[in-house]
């Protein structure tokens, strides 16, 4: 396969960036999107040029590190797929492809396609945990969790924190991410004790980081590689109201 690539190049956080065109030949349709970029980087290195910086780690769709906006869609055109699990057979020979980084104020660009997502870590540090006294492990099945609740919590827990929801959102809002974390922990008995405090603190941290506001357009749900539904945002809204009205 042969492709025409337009890739965002930016030497550093403060430097101005621009789209640069690359014509790449010899792509196998079995390659993943990242392997295609590896091929381009090998070519660039051999030519003595600066390779393109992009994030990746596990390359099996679970770490949330890869973060490319492909033709305007975070993680590319395949539904429920991360970039590393996206294969070149979904593209046409000779196709033009635009590759850009996540674009949001809380995700400053480090270089080329690499963005700094520490803002999400700070939101997690504000309440995305369960405080427990470490001791011996409890007996299995001593804490009962209903099947439906477990399923629902698991659906939210599928969030890999990649930030595609923010990148896709028309307002660069981080609500689907925060909603998934708040719901996953708040649904389970271990996390229920801190449910009200958690939602208040995490939303406060989210607002401080400069994420945008949710206007219920659901672009996040359409792009999420783990297909987390926006019903969790409604759930977070409920929790936040309850926390504001009743918790101390």
């Amino acid at each position: 396969m042969k492709l025409i690539l337009h890739i965002w190049r930016q030497p550093g956080p403060k430097a101005p960036g621009r789209m640069e065109r690359f014509d790449l030949d010899g792509i196998s349709e079995h390659m993943s999107f990242l392997e295609m970029l590896d091929l381009l980087n090998e070519k660039l290195t051999a030519e003595g040029k600066e390779p393109i910086a992009f994030d990746s780690d596990c390359r099996e769709g679970i770490c949330g590190m890869c973060s490319l906006v492909i033709n305007g869609v975070p993680h590319g055109p395949e539904k429920g797929t991360t970039v590393c699990q996206l294969h070149m057979r979904h593209f046409r020979d000779g196709q033009e492809i635009w590759i850009e980084p996540w674009r949001a104020k809380p995700f400053p660009i480090v270089k080329d396609l690499v963005v700094d997502r520490s803002s999400m870590d700070r939101v997690m540090a504000a309440g995305g945990y369960v405080s427990v006294n470490a001791g011996s492990a409890p007996d299995a099945n001593s804490v009962l969790v209903g099947k439906d609740t477990a399923e629902q919590a698991f659906e939210a827990a599928a969030c890999i924190g990649c930030g595609a929801c923010v990148a896709a959102c028309k307002n660069a809002s981080g609500m689907l991410f925060v909603a998934a974390k708040v719901s996953h922990l708040g649904l389970l008995p271990q996390g229920r004790e801190e449910r009200m405090r958690r939602v208040r603190r995490m939303v406060e941290a989210m607002d401080q980081e400069g994420f945008g506001n949710c206007t219920n357009q659901y672009e996040c749900e359409a792009t999420c590689p783990k297909e987390i539904p926006v019903a969790f945002i409604a759930r977070m809204n409920r929790d936040f109201l309850k926390a504001a009205l009743f918790s101390s």
Binding site: G72, W98, E100, K105, K170, N171, E219, A222
Partner: peptide
Amino acid sequence: ARPVSYVKGRTLKA
């Protein structure tokens, strides 16, 4: 919250 917009923007559901 989005100081630089996408060169190639796309809308899926909005």
